[in-house]
Design a protein around this nucleic acid. Sequence first.
DNA 1: GCTTGTACGTTCTATTTCCGAACGGAGAAT
DNA 2: ATTCTCCGTTCGGAAATAGAACGTACAAGC
Lengths: 125, 125
Amino acid sequence: MERIKPSEASTPASKWDQLATDWCPVARALSVIGDRWTMLIVRDCFLGKSRFEEFQKSLGVTRHVLSNRLKRLVEDGVLERNVYSTRPLRYAYQLSEKGRDFAPALVGLKDWGKKHMPIRKPAAA
Amino acid sequence: MERIKPSEASTPASKWDQLATDWCPVARALSVIGDRWTMLIVRDCFLGKSRFEEFQKSLGVTRHVLSNRLKRLVEDGVLERNVYSTRPLRYAYQLSEKGRDFAPALVGLKDWGKKHMPIRKPAAA
DNA sequence: GCTTGTACGTTCTATTTCCGAACGGAGAAT
DNA sequence: ATTCTCCGTTCGGAAATAGAACGTACAAGC
């Protein structure tokens, strides 16, 4: 009956982090910006947004998750956190060069969405 | 003290589904292929894979999630489920035209990953 | 025949993540 | 002094995911 084969696990590393070391560049890219919200945050940056509240209102994502994603994006060098006000001390999240280089990928997504995902009405009440 | 403002919710529609009706084509695209694994499945399709076991081995994703994603991709018209064997009755998941049209976006991601996410070793034991 | 192997899922439970809302702090405005 | 804006953090419940086993259907080997 021993159909079981536990397999020799080694570094559990959350499956998602493992992508960062994948042989495929697409997978490695996704390990950074492949999250549900992350790519939309980057999009918003391209649209000129840069502040916590702006992202939050635009996306409707929970503040907790937003905080998390921004932190990651900064760590990964996609965004830079710059002080835009010292008095209350506020930061602006802005695209780094790495982030700006993401434009072509975003355009590819935009074109595909435009062609294959026509606008639908949000479920008429 | 009434700082609370419950807000008038209407259609809970899981936040992620709401993206399908977003004004932005990028968001609408992501509502379909924006999931962690979904884009990698599509990538695998471009690499010639088409069967359940192939995806499962390639990605290491759980069978449950894979089953789910494939179902969605077929529903959304990105993949087609074609019979490749009637005797044991087996299906092959293959790119539709809509799916093949995703190539440019994937290339964009690939280029970005290649440039900005150099290969790292998987955490030397 | 009976067991083993392959291909495709489905089902189960424990863990992780996410959502929704409230809380907190620091200054600005009224 | 109270309210408002901005930027997060914290909390409890809901949902998704991971990991492994199970089920089915057929084919092949003994």
